[in-house]
Design a binder for these strands. Structure first.
Length: 486
DNA sequence: CCCCTTAACAAGACGACATA
DNA sequence: TATGTCGTCTTGTTAAGGGG
């Protein structure tokens, strides 16, 4: 058997175990007294022993009026808003939506476990399963805690019964952590029932989609602090939970795990808070005016990914307005990504406006991106059929590329660090390929231009056709450019 | 510590178009 | 009409980061 199980059993002091030679009445009285003392300890932290068909376990149950606040949100704000969360359930493979756009708030089961470690294997045991759910105008948090492995089956049966009435799981990283572990426990315990759920909302991934670049980390604690305005005081770190549980097993004092209960409860409440936050966003209630540009941009990408064009539209519009209005460095960072977004939607006029604006703001710099020049060149050639302008943009891009080649060359030779060399070399070859393709583009445009002018003015024979280069010839010429700079 | 999801980037597939 | 090129869409791969 695993070391963990031995450890658990070693510490087990079965209540009411027969002490040798003691008279039965006194023995029963002593056992009763011990039980009473323990009950009082659990009562002191708001818990009690829950007796059921499958045995007993510790239960800490707390009810909240739904008007109660957790950070900036009142718990009742999910009511009537939760249906929109169903878009987060849609699987990439399945087109049909199993929930038909319905996801009542009282069908959700918020779940967070505390375990003996981080592994997913059978050696990792959830000693506490916290759940939260809405029922009868209340938000209820129920925390199940097992004093030894023998109580696990009762706890799992209880969870199973709750899943019947609240079949949609809500968690934070529960798809890869909590839920696989829980399923494992049903299997390990050879339970007649298997946990079955209608759907699983995992808020880690939406949080990453929106805040990966704005928050220092997307851990639940950071997200709830920054986006739910939840401040934890004297919180026990989740990473301490295993140690505290082992200490509890050794000393059998309920007070030892009190902090774990509180931590777990706050996690559950934050899951409800995140549901409200994301449901609000999916109902178009985000405060776009006050949102950071990065978050606004990520929000549009997120709506796009979720196939919600009616939500993405106002976000894109707000982002465009602000990026065009605010002439800051930071705002200009979004011109090109935003232009790509418009291009993707075949809104070429808007895309061109942004590419032009980028050139206007940053074109003078040597570090300016080539992308807007190349994109404009493509657009003038293929969409507007204006070859002169297309050639002009391509030539501007080539000029920039050559200037940059000079700079990177000189940096490259001056650089002494070995670590950065491969990355710099990669960038060099990439720049080189870009240079080659630009020269090809220009030659092609020159040829096209020559032919069209020859066609329209066949009498004028003064212009000479540009030398037609093969791609290898273009490469050689680009190589010459590079070699000449070394 | 371990596993899973996702974003970011790279490479391949395919349709549209133009030229000979 | 056959062929090649361009641009975009699709597929494949990799790395990071979260849970106690």
């Amino acid at each position: 058997m695993s070391g963990l199980r031995e450890r658990l059993l070693r510490h087990k002091k079965p209540i009411g175990e027969r002490a040798a030679g003691a008279p039965e009445a006194a023995e029963a009285a002593a056992a009763g007294a011990a039980r009473e003392a323990e009950d009082q300890e659990w009562a002191a932290i708001g818990a009690h022993m829950e007796q059921g068909e499958w045995g007993a376990f510790v239960m800490r149950r707390r009810e909240y009026d739904t008007a109660a606040c957790h950070g900036r949100y009142a718990l009742n704000e999910l009511i009537g808003q939760s249906d929109q969360l169903h878009v987060l359930l849609a699987r990439p493979g399945t087109d049909s939506d199993p929930t038909e756009g319905q996801l009542p708030h009282d069908k959700l089961l918020f779940v967070d476990t505390e375990t003996t470690g981080l592994g997913i294997g059978a050696g990792n045991v959830p000693f506490m399963i916290g759940i939260g759910f809405y029922t009868h105008e209340r938000f209820v948090v129920e925390q199940m805690f097992i004093r030894d492995p023998g109580e696990e089956v009762a706890m799992l049966h209880y969870l199973h019964s709750k899943l019947q009435s609240h079949p949609y799981l809500v968690s934070y990283n529960g798809k890869t952590f909590d839920w696989p572990i829980i399923k494992n426990r049903y299997i390990v315990n050879r339970m007649p029932v298997q946990p079955d759920i209608a759907g699983h909302l995992d808020f880690l991934y939406p949080s990453r989609s929106l805040w990966k670049h704005t928050l220092p980390s997307c851990r639940l604690g950071k997200v709830e602090e920054e986006r739910l305005a939840v401040i934890r005081q004297d919180d026990v770190a989740g990473s301490l939970a295993p140690a505290l549980y082992f200490q509890y097993l050794a000393e059998r004092k309920a007070l030892i795990v009190q902090g774990v209960f509180v931590h777990n409860e706050l996690d559950i409440l934050s899951l409800a808070g995140l549901s409200i936050h994301f449901a609000g966003a999916l109902n178009g209630k985000s405060n776009l005016e006050q949102m950071d540009l990065e978050e606004l941009y990520r929000l549009t990408l997120w709506f796009d990914k979720l196939n919600q064009p009616s939500l993405a539209a106002p976000a894109v519009q707000m982002l465009t307005e602000r990026v065009c209005r605010e002439e800051t460095e930071h705002a200009s960072e979004y011109l090109l990504p935003l232009a790509q977004l418009y291009k993707q939607r075949h809104c070429f006029t808007d895309a061109c406006k942004l590419w032009t604006l980028y050139i206007q703001r940053r074109g003078a710099r040597s570090t300016a991106a080539l992308e807007p020049y190349i994109e404009l060149s493509k657009h003038y050639e293929h969409k507007l059929k204006k070859l002169e302008q297309a050639l002009d943009y391509a030539e501007q891009a080539l000029l920039k590329a050559r200037q940059r080649q000079v700079l990177t060359r000189s940096y490259g030779t001056a650089g002494s660090g070995l670590a950065g060399r491969s990355a710099a070399a990669r960038k060099n070859t990439k720049d080189y390929e870009q240079l080659v393709s630009l020269e090809q583009r220009i030659q092609r445009l020159q040829l096209k231009l020559y032919r069209s002018s020859a066609k329209s003015k066949p009498t004028r024979g003064t212009q000479r056709p540009p030398r037609k280069q093969t791609s290898s010839a273009a490469q050689a010429s680009a190589g010459y450019v590079m070699d000449s700079l070394i």
